[in-house]
Design a protein around this nucleic acid. Structure first.
Length: 316
DNA sequence: CGTTGAACCTGTTTGC
DNA sequence: TGCAAACAGGTTCAAC
C-alpha cells in the first residue's frame, strides 16, 4: 500500500506530534517482522524523539539518548551509544499513528510505544510484511548506501546514469529500491503512462528524450500524489487515520478495460517483474522486435565455461 | 546481469 | 449458497 507519497504523508503527520516526546515504554504483540524485538524494549524507554524523516519507503524516527539523567543508574559500558534511529517500513498494510490509549485498538496492532504526553504511537499491520529495526547513527550511512537516490529528488543526470547500460525492463528498474528509492507499483505505472513508455521496454534502449520525459513524469506524479495525501485503494490511512485521494487521479492503475484518458484505447494489464502492470496499448507502444531471449539449445550446455578476467568489481 | 516463481501473511473479491 | 482461486500498495531468495 505505501509508496513514497503515502510514506511522506505519514511522516508529515507524525512530525506534527512526535518530535520532543519521550518514549516511556514499549509493548509488542507479534514480533516476526521486527529485526530485534528485545532491543526495542531495552533501548527505547527513556529516549527523546528528534527528527522524523523519510528514507525511501522507510520512516526514520531519530532517538536521542536520555539526557538529563541525574543518576547514571547502571549504565552499561558503551557510554551513551549516541543516537539511535528507529526505522519502520510499512510493507503492504502497515500503519503508524499516534492515538490516545483510550481509543480501541484496531485488530493486528502489534506495536505500542507509550509517550510522555499520555498518547501512544501504534503500529498496525494486517499482513506483517512491514519491518521495524533499530540502527545506530554510525550504521545509518551503511544502511542508506544500499538504496538508490530518492525518486523525488533524483536529478536528471543521476537518473540517466542509473538507467544507462541496464538491460532490465524499465518497470523492474523503477521498482528496484537499489536503483531508485521510493517508487512502487502504482506510481511506476502512472509515471510510465505519463511518459508514454511501455513497462516492458529495456532501460538501455530508451532514448535520451524518453528518459528525460520519464524523469519529469516521476516527479510530477509524486508531487501531485503527496499534495493529495497519497492514494487510498482500500486501506491506506495517514497518521491521523485519514485516507488520501490521489486514487481519483490514477490514469492507468486499477483501470484495466477502461478508456485511456489520453486516447480512448482500453487500458490493459499484464505481469511485468512479477507485478500487475497497467498501460495504454496505444500511447505506450510495445518495443519493436528484439526482446525475447533466443530460444536456442536446450541441451546440457557446458556450464563450467568461465569468461575472461573479472574486474575487481568494487562493491559497496 | 536479469528473470521467474515462490515465500512471507491476512483479507477481500471474483468466478464457477 | 459455497468454496476455491485470484489478487492486493513490498521485499527477498533460490534456481536458472
Amino acid at each position: 500500500m505505501p509508496e513514497l507519497p503515502e510514506v511522506e504523508t505519514v511522516v508529515r503527520g507524525l512530525r506534527a506530534t512526535l518530535p520532543g516526546r519521550r518514549i516511556l515504554a514499549v509493548r509488542l504483540g507479534k514480533t516476526d517482522f521486527i529485526d530485534d524485538p528485545a532491543a526495542l524494549g531495552e533501548r527505547l524507554p527513556g529516549r527523546r524523539i528528534g527528527a522524523v524523516e523519510r528514507i525511501g519507503k522507510f520512516i526514520r524516527v531519530e532517538l536521542a539518548p536520555e539526557t538529563g539523567a541525574a543518576h547514571p543508574t547502571q549504565s552499561h559500558a558503551h557510554e551513551a551509544d549516541g543516537r539511535l534511529h528507529l526505522l519502520v517500513h510499512l510493507g503492504m498494510t502497515g500503519r503508524l499513528a499516534v492515538r490516545s490509549p483510550d481509543e480501541p485498538v484496531v485488530p493486528h496492532t502489534h506495536g505500542f510505544f507509550e509517550l510522555d504526553d499520555g498518547q501512544e504511537l501504534r503500529y498496525t499491520d494486517i499482513r506483517r510484511f512491514g519491518r521495524i529495526l533499530l540502527v545506530s547513527a554510525s550504521a545509518l550511512p551503511e544502511f542508506e548506501s544500499r538504496l538508490g537516490e530518492d525518486a523525488l529528488f533524483v536529478s536528471a543526470r543521476e537518473f540517466r546514469q542509473q538507467l544507462s547500460g541496464r538491460r532490465a525492463r524499465i518497470k523492474a528498474l523503477l521498482l528496484d529500491q537499489k536503483s531508485l528509492r521510493g517508487m512502487g507499483n502504482i506510481y511506476s505505472d502512472e509515471s510510465l503512462w505519463r511518459a508514454r513508455i511501455h513497462p516492458v521496454r529495456l532501460a538501455s534502449r530508451l532514448t535520451a528524450e524518453e528518459i528525460a520525459r520519464l524523469h519529469q513524469a516521476i516527479r510530477q506524479v509524486l508531487r501531485a500524489a503527496i499534495k493529495l495525501g497519497g492514494s487510498s485503494i482500500s486501506d491506506f490511512l495517514d497518521a491521523e487515520g485519514k485516507p488520501g485521494s490521489y486514487q481519483m487521479r490514477h490514469r492507468v492503475y486499477g483501470r484495466e478495460g477502461q478508456k485511456c484518458f489520453r486516447c480512448g484505447a482500453l487500458i490493459r494489464r499484464i505481469i511485468v517483474a512479477g507485478r500487475s502492470s497497467h498501460f495504454c496499448p496505444h500511447c505506450q507502444p510495445r518495443p519493436r522486435r528484439g526482446q525475447r531471449a533466443p530460444r536456442s539449445g536446450r541441451s546440457r550446455a557446458k556450464s563450467t565455461k568461465t569468461r575472461g578476467a573479472k574486474p575487481p568489481s568494487a562493491r559497496k
